[in-house]
C-alpha cells in the first residue's frame, strides 16, 4: 500500500539529507512530502520531524510556521519520528538560550553536557560530534535488525533528560550516560541522525517506514 510520509520543513536544518534517506528506503509508490503545511502534516500517514540549530530559533520557527498544533497532534496519533532537535523540542524546557520553553509533550529538561574528561584525561569536546554507541534499553519494532550497541552519528551539545523513565528506549555515554532515544506508542525520537548513520541508520528509517502500529 502506498503511504504518504511528511517531512516537516520549518527552515531548521538540513532536510535534504533526511528526505533523500527516506526516499532511499521508501517503497516506489510511497510519497514523500517536504512541507510546512499543517494540513498536509495532519493528512500524512506518517511524519518525520527533523531539526537542527538553537532551541529558541526552533521554537520560533515552529510558531512562525503555525506548526505547533499539527506537530503535537501527529506526535500523538500516527507513526512519528523525531530527529535531533525534533526530539528535544518535544520536552518541556531547555537550558539553551538562557532557558527556552519547549512544546511540552513530555515532562523533562534538555540539558547542556557538563565538562568532563575521557580516560586519557583529555577534555571531551562539545558538541559531541561523531559515531557513538546506543544501548537499546528495550525491544522496539524500530530496533529490528539493528544490533544492540550499534554506533550512530551524533552532533549536539544538549541532551534530553525525561522525567518518565519508561519513555527511554536507548542510552548513550558521553562523559555521562544520557537518553539518546525515546519512544512511546506511535512515537520514536532519536538524538542521533539516522539519515547520516550509514546502514544502521537506513535500517532504522526503513523500519519506521514499515512500522505498523
Amino acid at each position: 500500500m502506498s503511504k504518504t510520509i511528511a517531512v516537516i520543513d520549518y527552515g531548521m536544518g538540513n532536510l535534504r539529507s533526511v528526505s533523500k534517506a527516506i526516499e532511499h528506503v521508501a517503497g516506489a509508490d510511497d510519497r514523500i512530502q517536504v512541507t510546512d503545511d499543517p494540513e498536509l502534516i495532519l493528512r500524512a500517514d506518517r511524519v518525520v520531524f527533523p531539526g537542527q540549530g538553537a532551541a529558541r530559533d526552533c521554537m520560533a520557527a515552529i510558531s512562525n510556521h503555525h506548526l505547533n498544533r499539527a506537530v503535537l497532534e501527529a506526535a500523538q496519533r500516527k507513526p512519528f519520528l523525531g530527529i535531533c532537535m525534533g526530539m528535544q523540542v518535544l520536552m518541556s524546557f531547555s537550558e539553551e538560550n538562557q532557558g527556552t520553553r519547549l512544546m511540552g509533550l513530555f515532562p523533562g529538561q534538555v540539558r547542556h553536557f557538563p565538562e568532563s574528561r575521557d580516560a586519557q584525561g583529555l577534555r571531551l569536546k562539545i558538541p559531541q560530534m561523531g559515531w557513538n554507541r546506543v544501548s537499546q534499553t528495550r525491544a522496539h519494532p524500530l530496533w529490528e535488525g539493528i544490533e544492540d550497541q550499534t554506533r550512530f552519528y551524533f552532533v549536539h551539545s544538549y541532551y534530553v533528560d525525561p522525567e518518565e523513565p519508561d519513555l527511554v528506549a536507548g542510552t548513550t555515554d558521553y562523559g555521562i550516560p544520557f537518553t539518546s532515544v525515546i519512544a512511546r506508542d506511535n512515537l520514536f525520537a532519536t538524538q542521533f541522525h539516522p539519515e547520516k548513520s550509514a546502514d544502521a541508520g537506513l535500517r532504522l528509517l526503513r523500519n519506521f517506514v514499515n512500522w505498523e502500529l
Binding site: 533523500k20 526516499e23 532511499h24 539519515e195 547520516k196 548513520s197 550509514a198 537506513l202
Partner: peptide, 8 residues
C-alpha cells in the same frame, strides 16, 4: 553523492 551515500 548525497543521494546514495548516507554518512556526513
Amino acid at each position: 553523492v548525497a543521494s546514495e551515500v548516507f554518512i556526513p
